[in-house]
């Protein structure tokens, strides 16, 4: 198990968003997370990534307790997250966004003046890597455009590219293909599948066909609780799932 989430509880005022959620995620798998609107999926990702503190429960990543860490510390362990509403850096170009995401860049100021050669060498290597990733996502020609000038779908692609740029060990995807046409959505999931050999994915997604095709395991949530868990085949036959989710 690369990620163990145990009995997480989180409420907002009177509303119980997470009511004792537990997950066990195996290394190098794609795990789907489905559930009706408001069932607590995004909240769960916010808790795992440290953006929200849970009231109780624990989170272990590679055997290490991360439940009290800050978001940037969790990110540094190689856990990368995306946001449901794509967040772009409006005044930055696509390539600048990619550079920000890189983990190999030097943000020190002293080094910039003492060893400028090395800083720019690393940056050039990053730019090269960024160009290749963008190229593979068919947005290579947009490298010098402002991120805010991209279409919604292109922004989703950029945010996927930024995730690749971080070379993460674990990715929390919050609806990575929402609003993207099915062909492109499938293409993104094919890329996710290719990365499976080095990365583990927890993906929130509403499109059942995509989940059935690409996930190894699926968790179903409803009203802050995990109501079903299994392989895509098992989930498809599960009566309660059909009732709360697939049936509706």
């Amino acid at each position: 198990m690369i990620l163990r989430v145990k009995d997480i509880k989180k409420s907002f005022g009177g509303l119980i968003a997470l009511d004792g959620v537990s997950l066990d995620i195996k290394k190098n798998t794609i795990v789907g997370l489905i559930g009706p609107n408001g069932s607590g999926k995004t909240t769960l990702i916010n808790v795992i990534s440290g953006f929200i503190q849970p009231e109780s429960g624990s989170i272990e990543f590679k055997g290490m307790d991360i439940s009290s860490m800050k978001p940037h510390q969790i990110a540094r362990l190689g856990i990368c997250r995306t946001f449901q509403l794509t967040r772009v850096f409006r005044h930055m170009t696509v390539l600048e966004c990619m550079l920000l995401a890189s983990k190999t860049h030097d943000t020190g100021i002293l080094k910039l003046f003492l060893n400028p050669g090395e800083v720019s060498k690393k940056q050039n290597a990053d730019i090269e890597r960024a160009r290749n990733i963008l190229e593979a996502l068919d947005i290579g020609h947009l490298g010098n455009e402002y991120a805010s000038s991209l279409s919604g779908g292109q922004q989703k692609l950029l945010s996927f590219g930024m995730v690749q740029m971080t070379q993460p060990g674990f990715v929390l995807f919050d609806e990575p293909v929402a609003g993207i046409n099915p062909t492109l959505a499938n293409k993104i999931f094919e890329k996710i599948e290719l990365e499976k050999k080095s990365t583990t994915f927890l993906v929130i997604e509403h499109n059942i066909d995509i989940l059935m095709n690409f996930c190894d395991e699926i968790y179903v949530m409803n009203k802050g609780k995990i109501t079903a868990f299994g392989t895509p085949q098992e989930i498809q036959c599960n009566k309660s799932v059909i009732d709360v989710y697939l049936g509706g």
Partner: peptide
């Protein structure tokens, strides 16, 4: 917030 997600303090 989005900068946190990329590991920067």
């Amino acid at each position: 917030d989005a900068v946190f997600a990329f590991g920067e303090d």
